[in-house]
Design a protein around this nucleic acid. Structure first.
Length: 419
DNA sequence: TCTGGGGTCCTAGGACCC
DNA sequence: TCTGGGGTCCTAGGACCC
């Protein structure tokens, strides 16, 4: 018996719902008289250093891709119009799409703001034998009617198959791979079309003379393991055959929250960096509190002017949620990074991970460990400030701490936290 | 034409504990 | 005094995705 064929008996029924050029669509839906009138539309690319977040299908004809610097995109398609990312509207529309999908499928997992996996396994009887392609097309129509958002659906017995099938469905269409056809279906794709294969792995594969899924399918598993390592080799062997054991998991568990900014011009001044760090810490803290989470680990990311990216993090015994505590840890990380290399900074970021729901280990403070970075009083104040921001806007109350301390202490006298 | 911002997952070395 | 192996956590970096 061959492992290449999956038994169709009891096979899963998975769909991937993918919103067509989502940011472009939302921009056009939100501004029908403006962005909506431009078929050659680009979204993103604020400031002189931006990249394209999303390009309309018409602009893609010119070779424009998302992630491309805006300047390059405009060179390829000078008539294109660039509009900013409609952040809030994107989140709203995404929620609306998800809400509709939840009515149509027992299991819905948001893979990103514009991608949702559905697991319809076990719905055959309820849907009276409607085949998966028909279900997919019905979902496409209902989502369009209820949210105005055009989506494409790929389907199959495995997540990776549904994902790759979506390519053939776009735009505004459906492509479902029948059970048993997975390996044959995958064989027609180039390796760069497989999710999980990026530029680095692609180069390695090319080094072995492999450029398509069919190429890889002809190589024995043992050789793939030898060339690319046991984990990567096994992964590749399975994927080119359309085998993917990962489940569609509806539980939404956020693992990290972060905020980063690329400066309009590089920043080399430590006080300026610290001020920007405080702003970022506040954004992260606000999101943590809004979700009732605390972060045990705070990370600072720096991208130097030459694009060297460095990171430093620190883990506490207790989770943090106040801007002040997050900033305190972040500032110490920033000083360490700047101490190691002091050169103009292009990007600064603050990350929170190791997220916990409730406060554990508060009592550890009694054992004479380090002084607590945040007290219950700090948290109460932070939440009160959040309420003021909610009611009167962000500008009603802003931190003055960095400016104050800068006036008190000249930069050269400032104590440095070393590593 | 220089390269956004939000994430996830993997690897590898070292510390520490049993 | 020297010698194990396994498990877990932390840290830094990198690949990748939308």
């Amino acid at each position: 018996m061959s492992k290449d064929r999956m038994p169709s008996q009891g096979a899963k029924r998975i769909l991937l719902v993918d919103c067509d050029s989502f940011f472009v669509q939302v921009a056009q839906l939100e501004d029908p008289g403006g962005a909506g009138k431009h078929p050659l539309l680009l979204v993103g690319g604020r400031s002189g250093r931006g990249v394209i977040t999303s390009a309309s299908y018409a602009v893609r004809e010119y070779g424009v891709r998302s992630g491309m610097p805006t300047a390059q995109a405009l060179k390829l398609c000078p008539e294109a119009v660039v509009v900013p990312v409609p952040r809030g509207a994107v989140v709203e529309r995404s929620r609306a799409v998800k809400a509709v999908l939840k009515e149509l499928s027992p299991v819905v997992q948001a893979a990103s703001v514009d991608e949702f996996y559905l697991d319809l396994t076990g719905t055959e009887r309820m849907l009276r034998g409607e085949d998966l392609a028909a279900t997919a097309d019905r979902i496409r129509r209902v989502v369009r009617e209820r949210t105005e958002v055009a989506v494409s659906l790929g389907g199959g017995t495995q997540r990776v198959v549904a994902k790759v099938a979506t390519r053939l469905a776009k735009p505004n269409g459906v492509h479902v791979v029948p059970p048993g056809d997975e390996a044959a279906f995958m064989a027609r794709f180039r390796l760069e079309e497989l999710p999980g294969i990026g530029p680095a792995f692609l180069k390695q594969l090319a080094g072995k003379g492999l450029s398509t899924c069919a190429d890889v399918a002809r190589v024995e598993r043992a050789w793939l393991s030898r060339w690319f390592g046991p984990a990567r080799g096994a992964w590749l062997w399975e994927r080119v055959r359309g085998i993917d054991a990962s489940e569609v998991d509806a539980r939404d568990r956020r693992k990290s929250i972060s905020s980063e900014r690329t400066f309009f011009a590089d920043v080399d001044d430590d006080d300026e960096l610290e001020r920007r760090l405080l702003e970022l810490s506040c954004r992260v803290g606000g999101q943590l509190r809004a979700k009732d989470l605390r972060a045990r680990t705070v990370t600072v990311k720096i991208r130097d002017h030459d694009f060297t990216t460095r990171q430093a993090g620190s883990t506490q015994t207790a989770g943090l949620e106040t801007d002040r505590a997050i900033f305190t840890v972040a500032a110490s990380m920033l000083h360490g990074l700047r101490h190691r290399r002091k050169t103009p900074v292009r990007l600064l970021g603050v990350g929170a991970s190791n997220l916990v729901r409730q406060a554990p280990a508060e009592q550890l403070d009694f054992f004479g460990g380090e002084a607590a970075l945040e007290s219950e009083r700090d948290r109460t104040i932070a939440r009160a400030v959040d309420r003021i921001h909610d009611r009167y806007g962000r500008d009603a109350l802003r931190p003055a701490r960095v400016l104050d301390s800068r006036e008190e202490t000249p930069p050269s006298d400032r104590p440095r936290t070393s590593r």
